[in-house]
Simulated scan of single mutants.
Amino acid sequence: MSFFPGEDPAIGDKKAVDLIETLIIPRTSDVGGLEVRRALPTAKRRLVGPFIFFDRMGPAILRAGDALDVQPHPHIGLSTVTYLFDGHIKHRDSLGTEMVISPGDVNLMTAGRGIVHSERSPEELRGPPLSISGVQTWLALPEHLEDMKPDFAHTTKADLPEMRDKDFSGRLIMGGLHGLKSPVHQYSDTLYADIRIEAGGRFHIPAVAEERAIYILDGSVNIAGDVFGSNQLLAFREGDDIIVNAAPGANGGSAHIMLFGGASLNSKRYIWWNFVSSSKERIEQAKEEWRTGKFDIVPGDEEEFVPLPE
């Protein structure tokens, strides 16, 4: 996805929960014909661990004849992580990768010194109405890897560790949690999980990562007596054990959350459009390279591109 600068998401009315450091209400925007809720970055909170960008895509039904069409655009200094709950997206990039991502799979595209990619509805699925729902995040790379060689990796749903208990079920996307370890490669300490808490159930988030947050996809959760509804991001204080309880209400009392975070990068990151770097000069260089056609093209998707924003 592309990051189009605009108004920051709103910071919600924080209740008296000492465990919660930041509460963010995302803003809604349109990207490639799809409604997304953008929770990171904000003026109040730029990163949670290496996560510098958090987009909730959908859930939506694209009308008959419509499709997702994010034209070729560039990235530097980050990894994109695409994870779907419903629908399919065809990824193409300047490495020559062509991959359709299905629900539960993980696409990890590492831009490093520079990559170009497009995200579109697969040709064979176009015509009828299309459902789409998922999350796309960006991970800022450590400084010494910001100009690494670009890379792409795909991990299928079947290869992700499952978490299952009477109170919850889910998949570990990145990192380690509750004795499980994901096979998805990390460039810094990263934690990422998809968790569904049953009605009346709870999920324990141990202090396994320096920075941790949840995004509430559906339902409501109760944390230390305060209730938070869907489409809110809650960032927690370092070092505290967190118990997330499914709260009565929507979804029959169950809740669906994304848990994410990791080690602090301990250095500032700048973000402009689709470029992330510890150096403002490197971002200016990337802008000029895209403006003058210095980035590689996407094989099979050479006719269109997203122009550099004014």
Rank of each mutant, 00 (worst) to 15 (best):
D194L: 10
I195T: 02
R196P: 00
R196M: 06
R196K: 12
G200I: 11
R202Y: 09
F203S: 07
H204L: 09
A207R: 15
A209N: 00
A209D: 00
I216G: 01
L217I: 12
L217P: 00
G219L: 10
V221M: 02
V221Q: 01
V221D: 01
A224F: 05
V227G: 08
G229V: 04
S230W: 02
N231D: 07
L234W: 03
F236P: 05
R237Y: 09
E238K: 14
E238F: 04
E238Q: 15
D240I: 08
I242V: 15
I242H: 04
V244R: 03
N245E: 13
N245S: 13
A246D: 10
P248C: 13
G249T: 12
G252I: 11
G253N: 11
S254N: 05
H256Y: 15
M258F: 14
M258N: 09
L259G: 05
L259Q: 01
F260N: 11
F260Q: 12
G262H: 03
G262D: 03
A263G: 05
A263N: 02
S264W: 04
L265G: 01
N266G: 00
K268R: 12
Y270K: 12
W272P: 04
N274V: 07
N274I: 06
V276E: 06
S277T: 06
S277L: 07
S278P: 13
S278I: 13
E281N: 11
R282C: 12
I283D: 08
K287P: 02
E289C: 07
W290L: 06
W290G: 01
W290N: 02
T292F: 13
K294W: 06
E302N: 05
E302T: 14
E304H: 09
E304Q: 08
F305L: 08
